[in-house]
């Protein structure tokens, strides 16, 4: 079904398409430029040039490595929620909150009506797509996750905030499609923790994607899969992107009991480890995936964004994933 949709969109992808979840590490020179801008030693235009160079480098790397569906690497973003909050109306920047370990982010605050006023990601998508003939994914954060990972000082409840955000994100999706984007990933990593709110996630995603001509992916990670599967199959998207590298053993029985009805971007590499898995390990994970997922539905990628790794680690992990997928095409097709 989804293969058909991809073809209708003019996309002819190989078996086991390779992709990444979205973010790549920012190279040291870009990190330095961001710090320099904070100290007002360079201009925003200088920073943008550094971001463009880093984006060109990541697109070039992915092409050379043989990745099938590319991402821009999010060189221009800090946090996946704050980035959208900075551009939509209604938000103000919050203080630092810990995410895990020694990692912190500025958790946004919804302080007024949320509205979409201008394209947020479209220029970067156009910039990246112009660098390659391979498809580049549009990368958005979903309304439920933006709501859940923001403080709400304005709307009366979570539902009202979420549905307002859904309307705003839909406008961004429409803008991406108008620009020519055919594969759009709308990340909802927050969805797996409040099971009772899963219908709200589905409703909000429907408000974002209904009757729009694109292949939709949603990324979900590090949550209680056992509580939301198979209900997540009701999400109105074509492909669910899941962290599976370390969780397959627990999740496969669930998938066996309730077959996966969508495409899956199946995580085969642990993004929180400095260790680069060898090709045999990743190949075995791909092979293992086929025990519960039909080949035509299987994409392979890392468990999550690779931005917390070094550039070298992220590149090595992607090369291994591509090599394992290519071997799988030959040996397991």
């Amino acid at each position: 079904m989804s293969r058909q949709k991809l073809k209708q969109l003019g996309l002819d992808l190989p078996l086991f398409p390779t992709t990444s979840v979205g973010s790549f590490p920012k190279p040291p020179e870009l990190m330095s430029a961001r710090a320099q801008l904070r100290k007002r030693r360079i201009t925003p235009a200088d920073l943008k040039r550094a971001e463009e160079k880093a984006t060109r480098d990541w697109i070039g790397f992915q092409e050379k490595a043989g990745v099938d569906v590319l991402v821009d690497g999010e060189m221009y973003r800090g946090d996946m929620v704050a980035y959208f909050a900075e551009t939509l109306t209604g938000f103000r920047e919050g203080g630092l909150v810990r995410s895990y370990g020694n990692r912190y982010y500025h958790k946004p605050v919804i302080a007024d009506d949320v509205t979409w006023r201008a394209p947020i990601t479209v220029d970067w998508w156009k910039f990246s797509q112009a660098l390659t003939k391979k498809p580049v994914k549009g990368m958005l954060t979903g309304p439920y996750t933006i709501m859940d990972w923001s403080f709400n000082e304005h709307y009366p409840d979570r539902r009202a905030a979420c549905m307002a955000l859904a309307q705003a994100i839909r406008q961004e999706v429409e803008a991406l499609i108008s620009a020519g984007c055919k594969i759009i990933q709308i990340d909802e990593p927050a969805l797996s923790v409040r099971v009772a709110e899963l219908p709200l996630v589905v409703e909000a995603m429907d408000a974002v994607t209904r009757e729009l001509p694109a292949y939709f992916i949603t990324h979900i990670c590090y949550g209680a899969f056992e509580h939301v599967y198979p209900e997540i199959l009701h999400l109105p998207v074509d492909n669910l992107d899941l962290d599976m590298a370390l969780t397959a053993r627990e999740r496969h029985p669930k998938i066996k009991a309730a077959p996966f009805t969508k495409d899956i971007s199946y995580g085969v590499s642990d993004v929180h480890s400095h260790i680069v898995e060898d090709e045999a390990t990743v190949y075995e994970r791909v092979k293992h995936a086929l025990a519960v997922i039909p080949a035509a539905q299987l994409w392979v990628d890392p468990d999550c964004g690779l931005k917390t790794r070094t550039v070298e680690e992220a590149q090595d992990k992607m090369r291994v994933i591509v090599a394992a997928a290519q071997r799988a095409r030959k040996e397991l097709a």
Binding site: Y100, A190, Y222
Partner: peptide, 11 residues
């Protein structure tokens, strides 16, 4: 590996 703690954005 890291794991989301209940319904928080804390891992």
């Amino acid at each position: 590996s890291i794991f989301r703690f209940f319904d928080t954005n804390f891992l």
